[in-house]
Design a protein around this nucleic acid. Structure first.
Lengths: 351, 351
DNA sequence: CCTCCATCTCAAACCGTTTTGAAAATGAAT
DNA sequence: ATTCATTTTCAAAACGGTTTGAGATGGAGG
């Protein structure tokens, strides 16, 4: 492997000049820079990471901790994010170290990783309400970015979608179609996003002057069977009126809802409208469900580039409170939503 | 952070002596070592990784690449291995970097990681028949250990179980019980282990003088539904005689087989014996199936400590061809296996 | 008392960068 | 031609360890 010293010897320059030439410092002459770059390419120069790190005091490695649930159901979303994030970070010369945790203390694995002192920062995911990790990491002075949002007015860097708006937009679409009895198949309550979705849902319903019957908001694992079970209970149950529309936290859940409707010989969207939030995970194509699924749309992986960018900025000393982005999910209307069935309209819409 | 220099200044020793004292070199006096260790602890000394790496030329980081399947079904086994391996490696001061790959070229992700030149070596998993990775990595001079075995007489470091024996032991148990028509719910053919399991199965059957009817060996994803579907086809099908015993590649598959038997009102082990190989994944307790499952038993995570040890030895220059371990799975007989049903015995066992 | 051999310790080189502070070269303005 | 302000380049000092080759110290044996 060629080193800076080799190049400087080859060219009769000092290593300092060579270093600056390669790193794009402005004070090096254009022709010198060209010569250096040519020589570097010719000699197959590749900077020594360890040396760079020693000199800069940075490791070039950021960490992420996977929380393993007892049921071992590995998050699809996690893999999607992981893949893209790795690529984005690599493009910025950062490596991602992963650690799997099964313990119950949410901050312990971070402390452990910090102890190994290989890391420049963290990417946090799956925030829970009042997530203790931000304050823990800040107390240690460790930069991090959060995928999602765990607090109302965070003072940390994060990227997330407006989950209240996700529900509100879906509710608005449905109420415009005349629906009044809308149920929510939510994510698990222990995740912060589920709280926001529910809050957005209830606020939008209230704003529309609609009641949310007891039991019309339920949370569960983001699986097809969760959607199936909940929908079956609502649609086949004899207790109280049935919903005419169901909001789902994920497309997999919507798949279960659609199956339940099929089993009950209910037509979608004739008898039931279904709408879901779509994280756009690879291998799941809600456009090809039967019927094609109306969704709020915010690809998980779109978060990765911003997250990587933010983390790097943070590493470079930017104020984390400035590194915050909330985007609004799109709305894609397909064929799973339609007008409320006759006779199920809101009272004042009845002719 | 205290450095070696701080300690040496504190104690009036040279950094060299301090370094050797802390690293356990024999030529440093016992009392000096004690003083150094005390001072190190008192000052909160923690070695600087980057500096160590620069000096030793080693990064202290090994990599592992997760192959993501199109169906996104994340391997439980993978998580189990990952967790334990991380811990084992950490105990040896090695960090594990994970990369997720979705591409089709099996060696490309390794090349990419090597380019980032952060790694001292790799842990390979999920070997396929004629796996191209070993020769690729050897051609690059990169140390690695394989979890599993992809070639008949490998010249690389690996740890695995004797998969032929797994099948053979199971067949032996069943033939001792008089079974003659045994079917195999195998893993996917594209993994090397499945080939070995099938070879062991066919060899053992042949040795027992038993035929394996067409279609009695099928491979599939290691899920409950795979087991259910295959078992249903064999047991409810009208084509040809039904098996009296079924071997499963995983306990999840066995769960499916048991469910199929229940659905068909077949008693286990009265009408059907079931045996599976048990990787002893967390959260799956075949001892508590109904009936408790007879298994060949080889905890996945038992591989991790040996793998870590081998990798470290390899890193330290050991001959990889010497770093090979094959263990034999245990056999745990529970209640899912029993004598062949009356009238289904092998001909010469009939009275 | 001197020698010899362990045992222990040290100063210095080294790993390959980045970064600093100063010197040299260049060019324009006087 | 001289001066001054800019480029442009350089030597050397970090960064924090490991490793080398040699010197110091000590005790035992003569």
């Amino acid at each position: 492997m060629a080193t800076l010293k080799d190049i400087s010897a080859e060219l009769g320059l000092s290593v300092a000049t060579v270093s600056r030439a390669l790193n794009g410092f402005p004070e090096v002459g254009a022709k010198t820079r060209a010569r250096v770059q040519e020589a570097a390419a010719r000699l197959g120069y590749r900077p020594n990471r360890s040396a760079q790190r020693l000199a800069t005091g940075r490791s070039g490695v950021v960490g992420m901790i996977v929380k393993l649930r007892a049921d071992m159901s590995a998050d699809q979303t996690f893999f999607d994010v992981l893949t893209t994030l790795t690529a984005e970070l690599a493009a910025c010369d950062l490596d991602l170290v992963l650690s799997v945790d099964q313990g119950s203390d949410p901050t312990a694995p971070y402390a452990r990783m910090l102890e190994r002192d290989l890391l420049d920062g963290f990417v946090l995911n799956a925030p829970v309400p009042d997530d203790p990790r931000p304050s823990f990491l800040r107390s240690r002075g460790v930069p991090f970015v959060m995928h999602g949002q765990a607090h109302d007015a965070p003072d940390y860097a994060f990227f997330g979608i407006d989950n209240r708006a996700v529900s509100a937009d879906a509710v608005a679409l449905l109420t415009d179609l005349g629906h009044a009895r809308i149920a929510l198949v939510n994510g698990e309550a222990r995740f912060a996003f589920a709280g926001d979705r529910e809050a957005g849902f209830r606020a939008a319903m209230a704003a529309a002057g609609l009641a949310v019957p007891d039991g019309f908001v339920q949370g569960g694992a983001p699986t097809e069977s969760t959607g199936y079970t909940m929908a079956l209970a609502w649609l086949a149950g004899r207790a109280g009126p049935r919903p005419t529309a169901i909001l789902c936290a994920t497309t997999a859940m919507a798949q279960g809802v659609l199956r339940a409707a099929r089993d009950l010989r209910l037509s979608v969207p004739g008898d039931l409208s279904v709408i879901a939030h779509d994280d756009a995970l690879p291998g799941i194509g809600p456009a090809h469900f039967t019927p094609p699924l109306t969704v709020t749309h915010a690809p998980m992986r779109d978060a990765c580039a911003p997250l990587a960018r933010m983390l790097i900025d943070h590493l470079n000393g930017a104020d984390p409170a400035r590194l915050q982005t909330v985007i609004r999910a799109g709305l894609i209307v397909r064929a799973s939503t339609g007008p409320v069935p006759k006779g199920e309209e809101r009272p004042w819409q009845t002719p």
